[in-house]
Design a protein around this nucleic acid. Structure first.
Length: 287
DNA sequence: GACTCATCGTTCACTGGAAT
DNA sequence: ATTCCAGTGAACGATGAGTC
């Protein structure tokens, strides 16, 4: 059962039909073969990611070429649409070939699995760079006073770095996804946040961590790739700071871009990131 | 004590309002 | 008209809070 839950279905693309508009393709319909190892059924509305045949054969890292959505189910095949947001559709479609595969997560385990793999990869990376690493507990046990608002604590000597681990934006992997759930005022177990004010936005607050670590897996296919940025506003530090949410000046914008390879304010190097924290603290304490 | 209901934090995939 | 992007709901398990 565990293997079945973890193994994605791969449906080979047998036919792609593109309808052209004035400025390139408008839409694309596909027919894909349902392989014999599929033991559940598909339903119109099921979505997945198209990956290259080379990836399935082990020659390329994971990369989402385009999204696919099943619209009709027949005996041994499914019919559906290939889609992306308009800005990326044309280029993405030109990369898809017959024989590529529509990959479907049959029981929806991907999100939590990805999160766990990223955490494990970050843990080993940080250890490799010589940090003491602690994965922080979930913020659930208020009665034992262990609430934290970051994911990892890195230590070198007496110096502590609080790290919040995040992912790329699934629908646009050129951008980070700095977001958390809003805590509502009153009632909830986290409503009395001691000296902290209650978050009233889904954007992350600068002061809750020292570093953001964004997993680049969704873009590079390598689980050990991260981009790091100081959790500091760009009016505090022009090169290393991140943009503020206009209406919430204590919070960081949710979708700052990250170039490939990462450049300021991002860095792919954890040691460089920790040096920036040191430098920023020195600068901040001097003023 | 048994029970019901609400909440957190993570992902993906989307909406809707604002800005350009 | 188009682009940008903050905000939302689904699932999960652990937990707090309230009711009977």
């Amino acid at each position: 059962m565990l293997v079945r839950v973890l193994t994605p279905y791969r449906l080979k693309l047998l036919k792609i039909e593109v309808t052209d508009g004035r400025r390139g393709p408008r839409a694309a319909i596909f027919i894909a073969e349902v392989p014999s190892d599929v033991w559940t059924t598909f339903e119109p509305g099921t979505t997945g990611k198209v990956v290259s045949r080379a990836h399935v054969e082990g020659a390329e890292p994971f990369r989402e070429l385009i999204k696919g959505r099943i619209l009709r189910c027949g005996p041994g095949f499914v019919e559906g649409e290939l889609y992306f947001d308009r800005a990326r559709f044309s280029v993405a479609l030109s990369e898809v070939r017959l024989g590529d595969f529509l990959e479907i997560d049959p029981f929806g385990v991907t999100s939590k699995m990805e999160s766990a793999l990223c955490e494990a990869a970050f843990f080993t990376e940080a250890q490799r760079f010589g940090f003491g690493v602690t994965r922080m507990p979930e913020n659930v046990a208020k009665h034992v006073g262990t609430q934290n608002y970051h994911d990892f604590r890195l230590e070198r000597g007496q110096i502590v770095y609080r790290v919040e681990l995040k992912s790329l934006w699934g629908t646009d992997t050129t951008k980070a996804r700095l977001i958390h759930t809003v805590s509502r005022s009153g009632g909830g177990k986290n409503s009395a946040r001691d000296d902290r004010q209650i978050w009233n936005t889904s954007s992350c607050r600068f002061q809750d961590q020292d570093l953001f670590a964004v997993s680049l897996w969704l873009r590079t296919g390598r689980i050990t790739d991260f981009a790091y940025a100081l959790s500091v506003a760009n009016d505090q530090h022009a090169e290393w700071g991140l943009p503020k949410v206009p209406r919430h000046p204590d919070h960081v914008t949710q979708n700052p871009p990250i170039s490939q390879p990462p450049t300021d304010p991002w860095t792919p190097d954890l040691l460089e990131a920790s040096r920036r924290v040191d430098a920023w603290r020195k600068l901040r304490d001097a003023t």
